[in-house]
């Protein structure tokens, strides 16, 4: 506030601002109008937030015609900054020739950055809209293929969003 013991005052305040009371009334008007604004609180357990398509919830594996799209290239695992993804590949008789024998995401480690989705050449791993993740132990937090596989119908929104914006 002071420099060399000299008070520096802002000179751009007008007389009415210096009087202060009109400014208080202005502020009161603002807060009074605020009383009637729309509340942004969502009453959580009863009402839930519906995320937009751009929302990055927990990553899931897309399941098409009963099989995962994933070809176990391991790029997601490579790019994952939190080292949360583990992929083990194996051969398959299907056209794609490779499939993940084991695909695990440690949800305690996952930071929901979406890099895996971005890097995936097959659009096989994408971010869903699920955000309610509760675990009771570390082991429970490691999601295997059983929890990760999601039929493609359920993630159409996100796939369309990706097609439009990528």
């Amino acid at each position: 506030m002071s420099q060399n013991g000299k008070m520096i005052r802002k000179e751009d305040l007008s007389f009415w601002q210096r009087i202060y009371i009109p400014e208080i009334l202005k502020g009161l008007r603002l807060t009074f109008m605020a009383l009637f604004r729309r509340k942004i609180t969502i009453q959580y357990p009863e009402k839930r937030f519906t995320p937009p398509d751009s929302f990055r919830g927990r990553p899931v594996l897309v399941e098409e015609n009963g099989v995962e799209r994933c070809v176990a290239c391991g790029l997601c695992s490579r790019v994952c900054p939190a080292l949360a993804i583990e992929v083990q590949a194996n051969e398959t008789a299907l056209e794609k020739e490779r499939y993940p024998e084991k695909f695990e995401i440690n949800m305690v480690r996952c930071i929901f950055c979406g890099f895996c989705e971005e890097v995936c050449p097959e659009e096989a791993i994408i971010m869903s809209k699920e955000y309610e993740l509760v675990f009771e132990s570390q082991e429970e937090a490691v999601f295997g293929k059983d929890k990760l596989l999601v039929p493609i119908e359920k993630v159409r929104d996100r796939l369309e969003f990706l097609h439009k914006h990528r």
């Binding site: 807060t31 605020a34 009383l35 509340k39």
Partner: peptide, 10 residues
Amino acid sequence: RVSAFVQDRV
């Protein structure tokens, strides 16, 4: 309540 309303809360 008033404080919440002023701050767009419930």
